[in-house]
Nucleic acid binder design. Structure first.
Lengths: 116, 116
DNA sequence: CGACTGTTTCGATCGCGATCGTACTATGGG
DNA sequence: CCCATAGTACGATCGCGATCGAAACAGTCG
């Protein structure tokens, strides 16, 4: 049956009002997670879990996605058997203005400098 | 002899160009260190190590100051037997625009919300 | 010099988070 | 119906950072 474009299988997300600075910083302090968030930003579109480029195993990556989601940084939803990821950029901006964007900018700047 | 307004006793500080985002985030992820930085900001003037209000022992506090200094977030200098602390806000702003200020703003906002 | 205050160093503890491999579950296609 | 694919749950390991108390150290003042 060709219907389940977006399947039921639910994922829990925190309300933005429930999100703490502590959680967000803890989420962003890990280099692998910053890598994930950066790739998500650069892609400009939702990405499935498997398409990220990170130097860790898949099970570890799952863990990182959980941390990011529970911190409120990303939103996840299933499409069939694959799980998609989006940045909750707008909401984060409302909750902690300038924070996520500053980290992303700094991250990009450093990446550029390193490439030199 | 009433002279040593600012004593010799040197303290090492990283150049701003040597500072990594990783270090700064690691410095700011600890609640006690954010507390220190917030107090420093609100005070608007240099503070001696002993005048901070934090729920840890003095020796632990020393450790936190070291981390903040090595990350480039604060600058320290001796005045006689006391050690003074300043935010390197301007330099941090140049290196990672918006980062420190966003964290401080978020921190302040949360403090206000909690007080409610 | 000697007491006093402010800060540091040291060594030990202790808990938490990143990581992995393997076994498991859920979807969708043949 | 069964297999392949995508991701997850679990349990174990392992290293690092926060914390402390006690002892050491540096100026300062009398």
């Amino acid at each position: 049956m060709a219907r389940p474009r977006t399947t039921a299988r639910k994922v829990e997300h925190p309300e933005m009002s429930e999100i703490s600075l502590q959680q967000v910083l803890e989420a962003l302090v890990d280099p692998v997670r910053r890598m994930v968030v950066s790739q998500l930003t650069r892609a400009g579109e939702d990405m499935s879990c498997g398409t990220f480029d990170a130097p860790v195993s898949l099970s570890t990556l799952t863990h990182h996605f959980n941390v990011l989601r529970e911190a409120g940084v990303i939103r996840q939803y299933y499409v069939g058997t694959t799980k998609m990821n989006t940045l909750r950029a707008v909401e984060m901006e409302a909750r902690f203005p300038g924070l996520l964007s500053a980290v992303l900018a700094a991250s990009a700047a450093e990446r550029k400098a390193d490439a030199r």
